[in-house]
Design a protein around this nucleic acid. Sequence first.
RNA 1: GGGGGAUUAGCUCAAUUGGGAGAGCGUCUGGCUGGCAGCCAGAAGGUCAGGGGUUCAAAUCCCCUAUCCUCCA
Length: 889
Amino acid sequence: MPCIVTRFQDGNSPGALSNMKADDLREAYLAFFESKGCVRRPSDVLVPRWDPSVLFTPAGMNQFKDHFLGKCKLEFTRATTCQKCLRTGDIDNVGRTARHHTFFEMLGNFSFGDYFKREAILWAWEFLTSHNWLGIAPEKLSVTVYEDDHEAYTIWSDEVGLPAGKIMRMGEDDNFWPAGAPTQGPDGVCGPCSEIFYRMPDGSDVEIWNLVFTQFNRVGPPPGNLRPLPSRNIDTGMGLERTCAMLQGVDSNFHIDIFKPIVEAVADACGRKYVAATDDGRRMRRIADHVRACTIAIHENVLPGNNEEKYVVKRLLRRAVLDGKQMGMKEPFLHHLPTVVAEMMRKPYPELASTVERVATIINREEESFLSTIDGGLDRIEKLFTTIERSGAGLVGGGDAAELYTTYGFPPELLETLAAERNCAFDWNGFRESMEAHGQRSGAGARAEVFTSGPLDALKKAMDGSDFIGYQALETDGKIVGIIAQDRLCESLREIGHADGVTVVLDRTSFYGEGGGQVGDTGWLVAPGVRFEVSDTKREGAFMLHVGHLREGTIDLGQNVFAKVDYSRRAAIRRAHSATHLVHAALQHFLGPHAVQQGSKVDADLLRFDFSHTSAVGYDVLEQIETMVNEQTLAALPVSAQLLPLAEARNTGAMMLFGEKYPDVVRMVEMGDVSRELCGGTHVSSTGEIGMVRIISEESVSSGIRRITAVTGLRTVERLRRLEVALAESAGALKVPVTELPVRLAAVMKELKELKKSRGPAAAAGFSVDDLLAEATEIAGIKIVVADAGGSDASAMRQCIDQLRRKASPIAILLGSSEADKVTLVAGISRELEARGISAGNWIKEPATIVGGKGGGRPDLAQAGGKLVDKLADALVVARKTIEKLLTN
RNA sequence: GGGGGAUUAGCUCAAUUGGGAGAGCGUCUGGCUGGCAGCCAGAAGGUCAGGGGUUCAAAUCCCCUAUCCUCCA
């Protein structure tokens, strides 16, 4: 692939190491802070699934939340990272401005109760200005501090030596984190910050570095609500892209060495030239940004979808497709771009290369799906335009546009373009109002706090977690270290028969908490005179939470109990979990390496396994997979688990999931030489224990993801038995051997159908059309049939009328039938009578009232009904009189 | 998590105020035919997503469930 070298004018170079490449800046920053004692940590994943309060990693500090709160044991108190981040708050500005992105990288250094303001400020200054590092001319830099933060001000002025004119004091909206926290909230840790700005060649000041000094705990509204924290933290961030732009002397982040080639690849894919200051230039930058974000998100297995982070990816992709469409692109083109993104990111994130093909496929699919959504909306839009033209309004209403958008996903920008082609205006204000209303209706979801807190926080400070010994033992002594009822920590539990589950935490347990797809254990916590039934086990951090009900006695904090896992259930879960690994391996073998796990649920002798695959897995392949898995269970392969460093596990080729962040030491589960997977779950010791594995279904669960459900062990036996009984009973009923059931059944069905067909609808009701015709009376050459059709239903009578009309026109027919508590009448007349102004609908009205009902229909056929079953005969008499009168007039 | 929409023949989709379930393509049969989606005639093919309700009558109105699409968080 072409590597485009961006050249810069020397006149713009800010210092000694000008024109520094992004890769070099990243390395320099991390190396510098390493030299200050910070531990270099890898970037956290872009999608932190462990953190429910955010969809994407928004900042470098995210992976250190627990460190900041002292919620975990600190193995280091200084750290530095280059973090992949994604934010959508400023999405509308992306492409329009020089500095806004969705995806970006943030360089940061962090202190957890270690160094504070002085070091953070001095080091930042050193890194920026020292000729050993960036060597930026000091006169180009200025800073801000929070208005009350005299400490920071003094460091900047006295120690760094910045003149007063270069230090601005700003209010809480600009220089506090979270913004406006002192007066507006939220409660919790917060602090002033200090920002460093660079004077660009055009005279504007660009913020390149933010130093956050978290030193307060906010408690309620002011005054006096900011309490000093015992341990103060440093959280800093320097935007990689904008700092690069500064160093490389380019006017936009999109023109730095790792970004410009992506923008130009977009231009190539669109077959036109990139000209920065045009609408298309803006579109290309936006596409480049969005594709960069999506490439990495999809790499982490976040596929475009309908909620949460999946929806963000979808929205980004669709915006990019739309931009292409607005530039005249008719075919998918985005999928050419991930390769370029991976190449630009090769140094820091080499793993992107391994999934780039898959990413491209997924992007292509989403492009196609969006294009077909647009196609689907087009005929709807035609209808809209015809009504607009008819009304002569010359305006596409905002409400209509919003409906098209929210219901059918048709983008308003495109609608505006189409409207313009027909000389129609577009009501953007109305559109925004309608969207506002839609937002109101949807209801704003409660936003999770940045730092969540719960009843376990105190426990987390006191200990690392429960000691889990459930891999080896299913029974153990343990001490109760926490009791949580109604979301609150309690000293004891005395009430028997409480409705809501209570959570018990032990210092040591054999109970496996739900995780890794495996369901939680059940069982008992017992002590003399005490029985606590555990109905589920969950986990939070390293704590196992035994959820259940007290059945006997009382329990207290500090008490010792004996924890007994339900043995046979756990054995069944083990079987299913080990079978899952075999199924996973077999899928990869038969479908290819793309068929990676997307999620799973492992229950007692039941497993559900989701994996990436774009089409249905054929029956024959399923059969092969099932056979392979059963061969492996019959071979009774040894299963072992061992702890080893992550790097070592990676070298063994163990199955690892992209986008998962693994701890430094991982647990690797091996089954013979057929499966090697990182897994924290519980497993059999030989695959022979699994018993027979049967795949019972294969289905689509969302686009690009298939689901296999299978049973193991005793459940397979039960299932087979149940099916056999059903088969045997069916065969018995048809009096054939089981093996001949399909043939016989087909024959019976065929016979039944032919039988039904050979008898007409009238015959089914016990009379014939010919009989009716024979009983017909005649007035003025027109036949009249009025008859009781027994128990026929309305449909049979209709067909009967049709036959009569075909056989003997002109004719007027009215049939009635009765069931237990219901009378149905159907009347029909032939076309000639209809032409004379006679209406079946009018005819049927009077008889209908006789049976206590009403009815109507079309002139040539009408239907009515009533409740008075014994009046049917009367109704028929009336019907005959009525039609005779109508015909003689 | 919430809002809107959809679900009808193998496929793509129609069906006015509630009143007889349709078309095109595909399939099958027969006939015609020197072409680019050949033409003509005929036939088969339906749990109108499932369940409940309103009504004399429901594909159509109401409620519930499932699945899919879509917007928002």
